[in-house]
Every structure is written in structure tokens, then in C-alpha cells.
């Protein structure tokens, strides 16, 4: 998966929840810049799992601080069953 494709998906997900898409860059801090709380993060994770057909265990989310970190994590995953 291309980084740009993943970024657009994250941006679309967050825009649908009222977050300004302009703020969604690779450098953006999920909590401090975008205002995501733990519930938002769970919802985003599930949205990305659905979109890309992957599974992201909750334990692997701990090091994810920025949008770029999330993209890194998603790039390590292969679609389930692929």
C-alpha cells in the first residue's frame, strides 16, 4: 500500500468525524494536533482494518503517536487471507 493512499484514507475517516482535513499530515500528532481521544483511536483503527482488510492488535497501537506512525504500522500488515 502506498503511503499517500493510506494518508487519504485516514484523512477521509477523520473528516467524516468533523476534523479539519488540512490538519491531517504525516507529522500531525493524533492526540495533541488532531484532538483524538482513546475512543476515537479505537474507531480509527477499526475503520482502517475494514478499509485495508488487515488486523491491528491493540498492543501494537502503543507506539503510534503521529499519523505517520499509523501509516508505518499499516504498511507492515498484509491483508488477512492474502
Amino acid at each position: 500500500m502506498e503511503r499517500s493512499e493510506i494518508l487519504v484514507t485516514i484523512k477521509d475517516h477523520l473528516e467524516a468525524r468533523g476534523i479539519d482535513g488540512e490538519l491531517v499530515t504525516e507529522q500531525a500528532d493524533l492526540a495533541n494536533d488532531l484532538g483524538l481521544d482513546s475512543l476515537d483511536t479505537v474507531e480509527l483503527t477499526v475503520g482502517l482494518e475494514e478499509k485495508f482488510g488487515i488486523e491491528i492488535p491493540d498492543t501494537e497501537l502503543e507506539g503510534v503517536v503521529t499519523v505517520g506512525d499509523a501509516i508505518d504500522l499499516i504498511q507492515t500488515k498484509s491483508p488477512v487471507g492474502a
Binding site: 467524516a16 468525524r17 468533523g18 476534523i19 484532538g35 475512543l39
Partner: peptide, 8 residues
């Protein structure tokens, strides 16, 4: 209500 709050 702001678009950020509505889905919550």
C-alpha cells in the same frame, strides 16, 4: 452542534 461532536 459541531461536526466533531455530532457522531459522538
Amino acid at each position: 452542534i459541531s461536526p466533531r461532536e455530532i457522531p459522538r
